[in-house]
């Protein structure tokens, strides 16, 4: 492999009471690459993301960040490491504006007082550096943003904090054609800046268009993680639906090969 992985998961297990959602999941994410995480509805993709970002505690397994074992117990821990997540349900506060949302939980202050001008300037520079031109005013409330704009703000937030790893959970699921293209372009640009990007998507065209690697979850297990150039559409579809395809994927009895 070219570089050392930025983020590596080894043997992650996670259950909710009697339901075992993730079983012995391994995942490696490299800087400068888009790693697509695919899998059927309920395969455990969102759960895996929430384990990495400190929203759920893992039952067992290890998380390595830049080669070092780390424990992520809260969203704050994840942010400190340089890991930013754009959630499927786009958590923005509708009653706050773009700047306020981008800095939420990490407000710039001078003494006790919020430093609004500095925050506004930084937010503007970040959006400009991503060539985002779709928002009218940085002071408009999140409630007045379109789906694509919300997605853009959430992604820009990751850039603002100089994150090393950005995980996007179905960022284009609710978007039209034009906005999907814009967001995907933005995602690719993040990777080209040297960030490690994990993209969760159900859209195989998107996945093949911008990802460097594809990891497939099947019923809470990692079926395979392969280079995008080494596989075909239909192989990935098979991995998603059956957990294996030819010599790829889980073995007959369900265990890893």
């Amino acid at each position: 492999m070219s570089a050392t992985p930025l983020l590596e998961l080894r043997g992650i297990d996670k259950g909710f009471g009697p339901v075992q959602v993730l079983r012995d999941v391994n995942l490696t994410v490299y800087p400068g690459e888009v790693t697509a995480l695919v899998g059927d509805n309920g395969a455990g993709k969102s759960t895996l993301v929430k384990c990495v970002s400190g929203i759920y505690a893992i039952d067992s397994g290890q998380i390595f960040f830049e080669g070092l074992p780390v424990s992520v117990n809260s969203p704050r821990d994840a942010a400190t490491l340089g890991l930013e997540v754009v959630y499927q349900d786009l958590a923005l506060c509708d009653n706050l504006d773009i700047v306020q949302n981008m800095f939420l939980g990490r407000e710039k202050r001078s003494g006790l007082v919020l430093d609004e001008p500095t925050m506004e300037q930084l937010a503007a520079e970040t959006l400009a550096s991503l060539s985002v031109r779709t928002v009218k005013s940085l002071r408009q409330h999140a409630s007045s943003l379109s789906g694509g704009q919300r997605q853009t703000v959430a992604i820009a937030k990751a850039v603002l904090w100089n994150s090393k790893v950005v995980i996007l959970d179905e960022p284009t699921a609710a978007l039209g054609v034009a906005q999907t293209a814009q967001v995907l372009e933005l995602v690719r640009r993040l990777a080209d800046r040297g960030l490690a990007v994990v993209l969760i998507s159900h859209n195989m065209n998107d996945v093949f268009a911008i990802s460097d690697r594809i990891a497939t979850l099947y019923l809470g297990r990692m079926a395979a993680q392969v280079k995008t150039t080494d596989v075909t559409h239909s192989q990935i579809v098979e991995l998603i639906t059956a957990g294996r395809s030819g010599n790829l994927g889980l073995s007959e009895n369900g265990g890893p090969r």
Binding site: I55, R76, A79, Y87, D89, A91, C93, L104, G105, R106
Partner: peptide, 9 residues
């Protein structure tokens, strides 16, 4: 948005 606030740490 309580959940968004929680995720913001």
């Amino acid at each position: 948005n309580r959940e968004a606030a929680r995720r913001a740490g």
